[in-house]
Design a protein around this nucleic acid. Structure first.
Lengths: 333, 333
DNA sequence: GTCGATCATGTAAACGTTTCCATACACTCC
DNA sequence: GGAGTGTATGGAAACGTTTACATGATCGAC
C-alpha cells in the first residue's frame, strides 16, 4: 500500500511537505498543495493511522466498556457516546463486559494496550487491580452509570433516589401494602443505591419491609424470572413486584404471564429503567426512566476534558418516574 | 510510560529478548524469561499495541459497520460478532452508520485508516466509490445481512423468502384477503428481497396486490407509523399489515394503539424480524425470526478466512416464521 | 581435543508517520 | 546593493516494536 514516501516521490517533494498538506499546515503553497493532493489521488493513498498514532502518541480513539450490549439502556448510552465522540473527531471501541469482571478486565487490558486516549467504564462488580492500576497511572478514566467506592475517578450517572420515592408513594396511594423488590447486585453501585432508596421510601410510607420480599438478582432476565417465581410461591405473595432494571422486569413478566396472572389485579409490576415497548404492553408498565443519551453525551464531554488534562467534576442526572397502569388505575390524573 | 527498552535495561538483557518473551518464543531460557517477567511487573510495563501493529502490519482488530445499533436485530448480531472475534483474539470496532450512506463511508474511511485487519459491513443503500475502492484494493471485506449487487464480495445473510411464503399462506388460511406491506428501502437488498417474496407469495395464494397497500418505509419506527396511518385512512383499509422489520412494526403498533384499534379483529399485524417482547404483547405478534447470532458468528469466521487469504463462500441461513396470535387464532395447533 | 551443530542472546534495520532544525530563496528597507 | 526578515521546503531523528542476521557459548561425536 502506498505510503507518504511514494506520494512524495510522485509529487516531486519531500515527505515533510506531504505530511504538512496531510495536516493542513499553512506553510505550504497552494501550488504544491495541489500537486501533493493529485499524487495522493493518483496513488489511492490512505494515511496510516497506526504510524501516525505511534508518532503522535494519540489514537483519537475512546474505549467504552459496558455491562451488556443487549440491554437497551446500555445500547442507547453506547449510541449517544458514539455520536458525541464522532462529532469530536474520535472513534469509539465498545467492549461488552457481559457483566463479568474478568471480561471487563480483558477489555481494560486490550484497550490500554491499544492506547486509547481515554476510557469510559461501566464497572462490573468490584474494583480490580487492573482498574486501580489504571487510576494510579493516570490514564484518563471516567465511570459511566455506575461508580466504584474509594477511587478518585469522575463519574457520570443517574440518581434514581427521588424517582424511587415517587414510585413507592404512588404504589402506597393506590392502596398496595405488600411490596417486593428484585434488586440488582450488591456489588454494583446502582444495585446498592436502588435498594437503599427503596428501603428508605418504604419506611417513609410506613410500609412493612419483609425479608422474603427482598431478593437480589443479577440484572439479567433469567434471575428476574426465578425471583418472581419465588415471590409468587410465597404463602402471602406480594401485591407489587418492583424490579431493579428492565431485563429483570422482562423476566418477571415472563413468569407472571406463564402463570396466567393478571396485571395489576393479581400482581402489580413496576420497573427501574424504561424501554420503548413498555408502553405497548397491556397494561403499559409503570417505570423509572433514565436519561441514557444524556448520560452518554456528558460522559464523552467529561472524558475529553480529562484527556486534555483539565479538571472535571462528576455529573449526576435525575431519573424520573413515568406512571402508567401496571400498578393500578390512578384516581383521575 | 515504560517501554520494552526500559524493561530490557531493568532485566539486564537486550530488547530482542524482551520481545521474545513477550511473544512466547521458545528461544528463551526459563531463567531469563522470569527475569524479564519480573522487570515487566516492576515497571508496570504494558505492550504498545500501536508500535507492534506498525511493525507487524496487523492490528488484530475487525471493523463492523451496522445499520442501527438501537435495532435489537443489529445489537444481537453485533454482540455475536464481538464474542466470536474475542474468542479468536480480535477486538472489534463498531461503527453505527445510522442507515446513512455518508456515515457509513465515514466509518469505512476511518477504519481503513486505522488499518483494521478486516471489515464487516451491513451496506446502507447503494455502492459508494469508497466501498468499490475497498473491494479493488483487496482489503478483506464481508457483507453482513445485506448485499450489494455487482460486487464480488462474500456475504453472510438470512433468506426470508420461504418464511414470507409461509406467512402469507398462514394469513390466507385465516381468511384474510386484503394484505398491506410496509416494505424496506428499494436500495437495500433485504428491502428488495422481502418485497419480491411478498409479491410472489401473494400471487401464489391468488391474493390481490393493490398498489395502495404497498408502501416503502426506511426501516425506522417513524416511517412505520406514518405508513400504517395512511393504510388505516384508506376507504378500504387492509385487514393485515405486514412490516418489513421490527422497528416499523413498533411504529405501526403505535398507530394502531393510538387509534384504539384491536388486533387482530380490527387489523392484524405481522413483522419481519422478531424481538423478545413481541411475545408479551396482547396478542403476541406473529413474526419472522432471523438467526442474528448465527449470522454474526458466521460472518466473523468467513472474514477471518479472508484475512488469511483463504478462499471463502457466502453463507445463507433461513429465516423462520413464528406464528403467534396477531393475525388471528389458528384453528387448533 | 577439535569440529560442527545447536541454541540463547545481541545488534540493528525497518515499519510510516511527525516535527525539529537547517537551508535557500525572495523580499524589504535603508 | 547588502543586511535583515520571513517563508516554503528538505533532511533526519524519533516513536516502540519485531525480526533477520550475527555472535559466542555449550555440547556431542569422532
Amino acid at each position: 500500500m502506498a505510503g507518504i514516501k511514494d506520494v512524495a516521490a510522485h509529487a516531486g517533494v519531500s515527505v515533510a511537505t506531504v505530511s504538512r498538506v496531510l495536516n493542513d499546515s499553512p506553510r505550504v503553497t497552494a501550488e504544491t498543495r495541489e500537486k501533493v493532493r493529485d499524487a495522493m489521488r493518483a496513488l489511492r493513498y490512505r494515511p496510516n493511522g497506526v504510524a501516525r498514532s505511534l508518532r503522535t502518541e494519540a489514537t483519537r480513539t475512546l474505549g467504552l466498556i459496558i455491562g451488556d450490549i443487549l440491554n437497551p439502556f446500555f445500547a442507547a448510552m453506547a449510541r449517544a457516546v458514539e455520536d458525541e465522540a464522532r462529532a469530536a473527531g474520535y472513534t469509539v471501541v465498545i467492549g461488552n463486559a457481559d457483566e463479568r469482571p474478568e471480561q471487563q478486565d480483558h477489555y481494560v487490558r486490550t484497550l490500554l494496550e491499544q492506547r486509547v486516549d481515554g476510557l469510559l467504564i461501566c464497572p462490573t462488580a468490584e474494583t480490580t487491580p487492573l482498574v486501580e492500576d489504571c487510576v494510579r497511572s493516570g490514564s484518563p478514566l471516567v465511570f459511566l452509570d455506575r461508580t466504584l467506592p474509594g477511587l478518585d475517578v469522575p463519574a457520570v450517572r443517574a440518581d434514581g433516589t427521588e424517582a424511587i420515592h415517587d414510585l413507592v408513594r404512588h404504589i402506597h396511594r393506590l392502596g398496595h401494602r405488600r411490596v417486593a423488590f428484585i434488586s440488582g447486585p450488591e456489588l454494583l453501585s446502582t444495585g446498592r443505591e436502588r435498594t437503599r432508596a427503596f428501603l428508605d421510601a418504604m419506611r417513609e410510607c410506613d410500609l412493612d419491609i419483609r425479608d422474603e420480599y427482598l431478593e437480589t438478582g443479577d440484572f439479567q432476565a433469567a434471575s428476574g424470572r426465578a425471583i418472581a417465581a419465588r415471590f409468587l410461591d410465597l404463602p402471602h405473595p406480594p401485591e407489587v413486584i418492583f424490579t431493579g432494571d428492565n431485563l429483570m422486569a422482562l423476566g418477571a413478566l415472563d413468569e407472571i404471564r406463564a402463570r396466567g396472572l393478571r396485571i395489576p389485579d393479581d400482581v402489580a409490576l413496576a420497573s427501574f429503567d424504561d424501554v420503548a415497548w413498555f408502553v405497548h404492553l397491556d397494561p403499559p408498565i409503570t417505570a423509572i426512566t433514565q436519561p441514557a443519551e444524556e448520560l452518554g453525551r456528558h460522559a464523552v464531554r467529561v472524558l475529553l476534558e480529562r484527556v486534555e488534562r483539565r479538571p472535571v467534576e462528576s455529573v449526576v442526572l435525575p431519573a424520573r418516574l413515568v406512571i402508567r397502569r401496571s400498578c393500578g388505575e390512578t384516581e383521575s390524573t
